[in-house]
Computed example of a mutant assay.
Amino acid sequence: MKIVEANFLTSAQSIIDSPSPDKAEVAFLGRSNVGKSSLLNTLTNRKGLAKSSSTPGKTQLINYFDIKFKTQNEELPYMYARFVDLPGFGYAKVSKSLKKEWNKNLTGYLEQRPSLQIFVHLIDARHPTLDIDKNVDEFLESIKRGDQIIIHAFTKIDKLKQNDLQKLKREYPKGIFISNLKKRGVDQLQSAITGYLFGN
């Protein structure tokens, strides 16, 4: 199964102005500058699909993308889902009141969106034990429904020495290890997503 089409649908400030939850959703979240936009573009094979900002933390909207998958089933040749690009957390230089509102809207989406099936938590492979990522993990575990899973995807592995990468893999045996640059781990991530959503 592979992605054959990916299109930007809309941006929303919160769950209130989000599109109808009529497709299974995969939310991508991580610290600002973790490589989220680059991964989405590599995953969908669409160069400018997700816009990366030169200013970390600038994206403050929830961005929805319609994704079409080609199956090997002649009776059901295509399957559909949505990828959701969430605002990066961490570095944002925004006013306290805006940040508070932003966090509230983000939390509302994560806790209340009925179509949300998968959390893809992106973690910089060079800094895997930051408190901010631990806090996000604890939060996701506390709100996760029985029909949801968390995937840990470690980005920028091309910047690690081989020894450090092997150590990371031992510490996180269920992790997916990604290099956008060398396109490593991307197929594995897509398989984990489609396997959970569509059971194949």
Rank of each mutant, 00 (worst) to 15 (best):
K96Y: 09
W102Y: 10
R184W: 09
A6G: 07
L140S: 05
S142D: 11
L29E: 01
D124A: 07
I132S: 02
L181C: 14
P114A: 11
I3R: 01
M79E: 15
T44K: 00
Q112H: 13
L168S: 03
N73G: 13
T42Y: 03
R170A: 05
N7E: 13
N180F: 04
K134H: 12
D187A: 13
D187S: 11
L61M: 09
T194F: 07
G175R: 00
Q148D: 08
N41A: 04
Q190F: 07
G185M: 01
L122S: 01
L168N: 04
L140N: 00
W102T: 04
S38T: 02
V84Y: 03
S38C: 08
L39P: 00
Q188I: 12
T71E: 05
D137W: 12
Q13C: 07
L116F: 09
K96N: 08
E5I: 06
K99N: 13
F89M: 06
I178T: 05
Q112L: 13
D85I: 03
S14F: 09
L181N: 03
S37L: 03
K104L: 08
K161P: 14
I150T: 11
F69R: 00
D22M: 15
L140C: 11
S191W: 08
L86R: 01
N163A: 14
N135D: 06
G185W: 00
I157E: 04
R82M: 02
